[in-house]
Simulated assay, not measured.
Amino acid sequence: MKMDSQKQVELAGQPHLDRQRVPHHVAIIMDGNGRWAQSRHLPRVAGHQQGMQTVKKVTIAASDLGIKVLTLYAFSTENWKRPTAEVKFLMQLPIRFFNTFVPDLVAHNVRVMVMGDTAKLPDGTQNAVQGALDATKNCTGMILNFALNYGSRDEIVRATQKIAKQVAAGALAPEAITEEFISQEMMTASLGQFADPEVIIRTSGEERLSNFMLWQAAYSEFVFVDEHWPDFDGESLKQALAVFQSRHRRFGGLKNK
């Protein structure tokens, strides 16, 4: 079904995007940096370096399209298992990214937010992230939300622990725990009405969520593209969103109801 929708959009030539129906919250699993580098006989870190440049291009493209929140899966709780040298390089990327890109973010009125266990990041990375948060805190346009040292199961465990403590303290009755209450304990709660992404895009041909926004993805559309993340750009984003717009979201109801 996914391929049929994509083929229909591709046959039409340039993707036709209804600017009135651009999703408010787009999330992207940025996959394929290493495969991109290996296909060019380059070290994996070269793919991560190029992927950082893609983040800059896609951020501006998303902002120009009127997207309200762009969430990027930058570093997962499982990524610590990678070789030490690669992890060290990945921890340097936010420093390089924010040192060079914050002025552009401010110029485009983009506000940086972060979700994940950032306390476990190296001090230099934490300082760079905090600097970007401070520098863009007054921006009122698109939110660029980085999932950094983020894992959805970890997020759900933390939310459950907070709720359990309230119940144990007698401050919360178990029957008062609703979907809305749980959502307010998630790391996306600060995004308000845009907490749940309408569409999740994953690059590099893989078709899984990899512990990303499991709670928030309950009714998200998934668009899987074959391009490795370093090859993804503004036109790729439009193409993916055109696929999203070609679908009918029923939320468990009936199409014509």
Rank of each mutant, 00 (worst) to 15 (best):
W229P: 05
R44P: 04
L133Y: 07
I28T: 03
R249P: 01
S183H: 09
L72Q: 04
P230T: 03
Q53C: 10
E86S: 07
A135I: 04
F89Q: 02
N149P: 08
Q166L: 14
L70R: 09
P174I: 08
T118M: 12
S39Q: 15
K238D: 00
T140Y: 02
F75S: 00
E206F: 07
M91N: 07
K137D: 07
P230M: 08
V9T: 05
D117V: 12
V69K: 02
V55Q: 06
S63I: 10
L93G: 07
R111H: 11
S246A: 14
A189P: 07
V9N: 01
W215D: 13
N138V: 03
P83F: 06
W229L: 09
L105G: 07
M3T: 15
A74E: 05
D196N: 15
K2R: 14
D196Y: 14
P197E: 05
W80I: 00
W229I: 06
F181R: 13
V106I: 15
K68M: 11
A176I: 00
F244D: 08
T178L: 09
G170K: 05
Q53N: 14
T136D: 00
G253R: 10
S152E: 03
W80T: 00
V22T: 11
A85C: 03
N256C: 12
A46K: 13
G34P: 12
M113Y: 05
P23M: 11
G252H: 04
I163A: 05
A74Q: 00
A147E: 06
A195K: 14
A176V: 06
F224A: 10
W80M: 00
Q14H: 11
L11T: 09
L133C: 00
V45C: 12
M30Y: 02
N145W: 07
M113F: 08
D233S: 03
K2L: 13
I201K: 01
S210V: 10
G66F: 12
F222A: 06
L42A: 11
D64G: 08
Q239E: 14
V87E: 01
V58W: 05
Q245W: 03
V9P: 06
A37N: 01
G253Y: 06
D18M: 06
S246H: 11
L241A: 05
P197R: 06
R35D: 07
H108Y: 09
M115E: 02
Q193C: 13
R247K: 13
R158W: 01
N149Y: 06
I201C: 01
V223K: 08
V114G: 05
D123F: 12
F146V: 11
G205C: 05
V58Q: 00
R35E: 03
L11N: 15
D18T: 12
P103K: 01
L214M: 11
